[in-house]
Structures are given as C-alpha cells and as structure tokens.
Design a protein around this nucleic acid. Structure first.
Lengths: 334, 334
DNA sequence: CGCCGTTTTGTTAACGTGTGCATTAAAAGG
DNA sequence: CCTTTTAATGCACACGTTAACAAAACGGCG
C-alpha cells in the first residue's frame, strides 16, 4: 500500500540498503546520492514503517507514563499537569502511553519489548513493587513526585521544604507573627518536609513557635476543618495558618466562615499544591504551587537521555515550587 | 533474549507454525497438541512480540485519543474524565496514545500504520480539518463531545437538551417561577441546545418566559458575573438562574455575594458541566453533569467494534446527563 | 597503466510472526 | 488390506527495516 524503501530504491536505481542509509544519515554514503534520495522520499511522501524498524532494532518507540491510580486519590489537575509536562518534552518519534498501575492484575505484559522507558508518577509506597518489577526487567525508569530511598532509582521530586519555607516567609513578610500549621498524614515524607520548611522559616526570622499551633490533619478537606476549629478554640488563635495541602485549606476556610469570621481579615491562610479550585475559592487561595508540570518535563528529559545515552545523570533531583499569591493572606501592621 | 514461538516449537517438537496456530486458536490444529503447547507457553512465560505481529498483520495495536488542545481551553477534569473513560474500556492488547491536535504542525506522520483507530474529543470547529485528514487516510475515527454535521462520521455527544430540561424542571419542582438563563457563546450548538432544553421545561410546566430573563454570556467566568449583574438590576430579579456552564455560574455567584445577597436564599443557581471545583464553591454548586466519562467509554467501545467488526453502528448517539444536587438551590413555598 | 587504499554501493541474512500450499498422518470406505 | 478422503502438520516465504560483510568504483601514486 504505502511507499517503502524498496520502492524508493527502484526509482533511484540503487539498493534499498542505500536508501536506508540515506534516510538514517549514515556516514557511509555519498552526499550527492543522499540528497537525491532524500528528495525523492520527500516527493513520494515516504513515512517509515515503525513496526519493521522496531522489530529489527529491538525498540518500541514507546514511553509509558504510569500513575499510581487513574481513579480515586488522584486529582485531575495533577494528572493533567503530568501529561502536559511529558508531552511538552517528548520526542516526535516516541509514542506516549498512559495508564494506572492499579489497572493491572499482574505486570507480565509490561516488558522491554513494549516500553523503551517508563516514567512513574508515584503517589504511594505500594508502587515500590512496580518499580522493582520494572527494574528487574531492565527497563529504564524514572520515578517522579515521591521520594524513593533506593539510590539506584532515578528520582525527581518537588522541593516541598523550600516551598513551605516560602509560605512561612511570606506570612512573616506580611507582618504575621502568630503562625500555625495544619499538618498532613503522620509519617509521610511530604508531611515532614512541609513541616520542617515552615518551621525553619519561623526560626530563621525569630518568630516564636507555639506547640499548640502545630496541629495534625490527614490531607483531607474535613481534617482541615476540624484542625482549624481546634485553632480557633484557643484563647489566642493564630493570625496565619499554613495548611499542608489545598484540600485542608478549603476545609479550614469553611471552619472560619462558620464562625462568621473573615478570610483574610481575621485569619490568613496559605495552602499547598495549587489545585485547580484554589483559583475559585472565595477569597481565592494563596498557595504553594507544586511544580508537577516541570517535574514531568524533567522526567521526560531524564528518561530520554537514560534511554539513548549512557550519560551519568544525577539520580536525585528536586524542583523548586512557586508561591502563588492570591487573596487569602492579609497585610498586618503588627 | 526472550522466548519466541521457535523456542517453544523446539521444546514441543513441532514447527513454529503449529505453535503459532495453537496460540491463535486456529481450527487447523488437534485439540491435544494445542493444549500441550499452550501449557508449555504458559510455563515459559511466553509473551508475543507485538512488533513482529504488527509488521506481518499490518496493525498497530494502538488507539489514539486526541484532544483539540492539551493546553489552554481544556479543563483538567475534562481531560481526565476522558482519559479515564477510554481506559476503562480499552482492550488489553491495545495501547492508548494521548495527544493534542495543536501539538502537530502537520499530520503527515499520523497514518494507518501507526493507529488502528482514533478517538477525537473535539472542542472546536477547527478540528474538522483533522477529521477529514484522518478519514481520507482510511483510519477509523469516532468524534466525541461535539456534533459534526457530516452523516458519515461516527459521533457521540452529550444530551445537553435533556440536561437543561432537567435543570429547568428542578427549579420548578423546587417552587421557583421567576427563572432566568445565562447563555453561552452565540452560535455554538451547545448554547442553543441548552437554551432550548431549559425553555422547553418552562413551557411544559406553564412557567412564563420573560425576555429580559434571557441574557447572553460567553462561557467565561467574567461574563457570568456581568450577566448576573444585569439580572439583579432588574426591577424584579429572577429567583432561579440557570448558567450554561459552571464557570459562568461561579462568576454569577460572585456577583450575588458582592451585593450582600445570599445563594441560595436570595438567588438559586444551577450550572452545567460539573467541573471539579463545583464541589468546592460555597455553597457547593448544583449542576448538570456532562457525562464525559461515559461518552468516552462509549467512544472506546465504538472504535473497537469499528476496527474489527463491520457491524453497522448507529452513527449518531447522545448520552444523558445527570443532575447533581448540591446546595445552590433553595426550596420556595410560592 | 596497474596497484592499493578508501569510499561508496550491493548482497544477503536477520528480527518474530502469520499464512498459502505441499506434505504427511489418520480415518473412512470398499 | 488397499484406496480415497480428511485432518493435522511442516515448509517456505512474506512483512519493511537494519547491519555485517562482500563487491565495486574511485582516487592517488609510482
């Protein structure tokens, strides 16, 4: 049906090997014939058959982007930022394949024939089984978003600590002194990073830390609501509350409203993530944007160099966040 | 490296042809040897080489999911619902490929070698060029979400008219009589459908339609804000406002708040789409859920039967919406 | 002009699978 | 038990490409 290198070969009066060489920019060919053949190929609108190429070269020209799950537990903006990011950096000759790990009963048909490399956007410890399965099959892999302790795995994550530090600093720069944090699930690395960064900002700027201003949450909206209630029940409530994610920040805002208090007039709030609805809350939410898209771009770049070069890449890398200033933090004179 | 049918053939003392037949459930083989070979293949953990298969069978085992754009203009929940939907119905042997049309300068390397079929989640008239390009290349295609007039193209869209009808009906059932609509971009099919359905509900229930209650918007948040201001400036403002999408509904809510009025106590609001943040507004937004996920599931089913069967499918199909009742509509006694 | 080294081209096999046709084994019929 | 029919298997090639090796063409130099 479509035009093959043999067709071109006939028309050019050369062997198909020569055509192959011309198309692949081989040094083993005269510049003049190469030009001639390329021109002919262009004219005939030649498009290589990737299946044949794949077969002989033992490549798949496919990169897998896997998520912990495509269903529950993954927000859509997260998914989309990731997909957008990798798409921005993918090479034209590669296909992108998107799937959730939990769509598989077993991983037997994820093999190195089918994938040249895999990018895992990881959100759970449980992904480790997947990671080791892939590594054991000798498929290059890059893990994004979640820190994996194994030094051997290439890892790109967001710099949560720096982000939380900036949240604290922004509060302080805006004149706040009584600062609280609503933390995430106990034991998660992200929870600790965000706590550490925030507290470090207070320490560096000589702002006192009150034990009762550190309250536990679990990253869900309702836990933010409950935690904020605890804070507002204190004899002297904080004027600024850093929530370890946006969901809890929204819950916290609702708790404030329920007492007929105002955000940010009475309580200022900063979130973490910059999920899509942060723009739509009233007031809109000042937050730390997790650089999912940039992480994903870096992930794609990393997997591509892993695939075709043997360049020694740094195996751990973190990408800075961004403070998105909206309307949920007020200026304080004292 | 990995095990091939020839390896199996040797071990089973048959030719590779026989193995091929066993694996493909051919009738030209004795039941007993088939069993034996299948068992052996299982034991050896045989996985077929799709590149070889693709080459000889002239298939790609890849289905393309294309969006008008992966960037601006496409909300993340929309993207994700679509991806989730198709993933739920995709056959294991197929790869899913996701991309935005606007990522391409030209379509020359989208060919029938590379895609067995294409699902287009269309959001713009401009996609028609893409559609005809694909059709001309004889690649099966299904267009979702946007109506294409050409009878030849398979089309699955949401039943906006029915959805808007239900929005109107829900207002009326809740006791509202002064009902307004904020419309979308003039000339869009969706705009008209949503208007027609809504008005039909009023007509069917003998609720008067006031010209000044029909105001223009353009699907953007700010236009909803402005339109609502017009409505509130009327001597007798409506008690229920149907917004042709959620973005405008949020803008409309903000206009209400700005006048120190309450939603839903003073004005009830219904949106359309059920975007992710509809859950997070305060009060949360009652809205018509566009069945993107179900449309996508149907789309995948359709493309799969298009690919391997010649069954005559209905070429136009619409899928019903769902009324999501939240807190932005009040009960009225009169 | 003839030799040798270098550049360019061609020949052939290979990748793993499916398939038309020839071949063999088994079953049926006389 | 032999012949004919049918069922089961094997052989050889094809798919479109790359690559190792062989062959040819070219160029320089004595």
């Amino acid at each position: 049906m479509s035009v093959t290198i043999k067709d071109i070969a006939k028309l050019a009066n050369v062997s198909h090997t020569t055509v192959s060489r011309a198309l692949n920019d081989s040094p083993l060919i005269k510049e003049k014939t190469k030009k001639r053949i390329l021109q002919l190929a262009e004219q005939l609108n030649y498009i290589p058959d990737y299946h044949a190429k794949n077969l002989v070269m033992q490549k798949s020209h496919t990169i897998g982007l896997f998520f912990t799950s495509m269903e529950k537990g993954t927000s859509s903006s997260f998914l989309v930022d990731a997909i957008r990011g990798v798409n921005k950096r993918i090479d034209v000759q590669y296909n992108l394949f998107v799937r959730g790990i939990d769509d598989y009963d077993d991983f037997s048909y994820i093999n190195n024939k089918r994938f040249d490399g895999i990018i895992l956007m990881s959100q759970s410890d449980k992904d480790n089984a997947f990671i080791y399965n892939i590594m054991q099959k000798d498929i290059p892999i890059v893990v994004l978003n979640r820190q994996v302790d194994d030094e051997a795995v290439m890892n790109i994550i967001s710099n949560d600590k720096e982000g939380s530090y900036n949240a604290g600093k922004y509060f302080i720069d805006s004149g706040h002194q009584r600062l609280a944090i609503i933390e995430g699930i106990h034991g998660f690395k992200s929870t600790q990073q965000r706590r550490d960064g925030f507290l470090q900002a207070l320490i560096d700027h000589a702002v006192p830390i009150h034990q009762e201003y550190l309250v536990q949450g679990n990253y869900e909206m309702h836990s933010g609501y409950e935690a904020m209630n605890k804070l507002l029940d204190l004899p002297e409530p904080p004027t600024g509350v850093f929530c370890s994610n946006d969901d809890m920040a929204i819950g916290a805002m609702n708790a404030v409203f329920e007492r007929n208090l105002q955000v940010p007039a009475d309580v200022s709030i900063i979130g973490f993530d910059d999920m899509e609805s942060a723009r739509y809350t009233n007031p809109s939410l000042t937050t730390i944007k997790r650089p999912i898209e940039r992480i994903s771009m870096a992930g794609m770049e990393a997997i591509l160099t892993l695939i075709d070069g043997k360049e020694a890449l740094p195996h751990k890398r973190s990408i800075d966040t961004e403070l998105i200033i909206r309307k949920s933090v007020s200026e304080r004179s004292g």
